[in-house]
Nucleic acid binder design. Sequence first.
DNA 1: GCGACAG
DNA 2: ATCTTGTCGC
Length: 234
Amino acid sequence: MSTPLHPWNLAPKEAIALQTQLAKRLVLSDRIDPVRYIAGVDIGFEDQGATTRAAVVVLQWIPSSAPNFSVVEQVVHREPTRMAYIPGLLSFREIPAALGAFAKLSTKPELVMVDGQGIAHPRRLGVAAHLGLWLELPTIGIAKSRLTGTHAEVGEERGDWEPLYAGTEIIGAVLRSRARVKPVYVSPGHRLTLETSLKWVMRCLGRTKLPEPTRLADRLASRRDQKRRSLDKR
DNA sequence: GCGACAG
DNA sequence: ATCTTGTCGC
């Protein structure tokens, strides 16, 4: 284990410089083990933002079965929020809490899906890419909106997609994950190609526009779900 | 200088 | 992200 430790509480200027350096370490070819478990990660906030809540859900991948997955583990981790949200520096705000959640996990996933960008980032280090480097695991970023890049209009049917460009470089895909619904932005984070990333996202699509791993993590991390579960207890 | 800007 | 009620649609 040679974890590339680095401080999280950096000033914006230093964080930006670090991103540029870390992005060089990304592996954008397929270096993934046979998939048995897929994790979904998402972050939410409480106390008007003072507390960060990280949620990780692990699904078992079951080929040739319907559905193809079953939840095997879910973890929630809370800690004080460290820094404000700054576009482009999301990972420094969210990853520390995400690592706390991963530390509580007993299942080791072969693939991690993250709510946010992979390399579709101004310096090619979105939260999914950064987390992949830290965990040394294959990661995919699935964002609900665009951070950077340009693309053509996407067809209206499920599965339609268009490449996301930064100049002439393809940094991700804009995927219509549900017919006639706002598309999602898919980009590899670490140890995957865009093609393989898209394949896994499409495989994990259920009835909604988000793939099951991040949809379930989203639910666990959301304020709304906290309310729902406490009401159910009564 | 003026917008754009993951969650 | 979060604050919030109703409302349109399958």
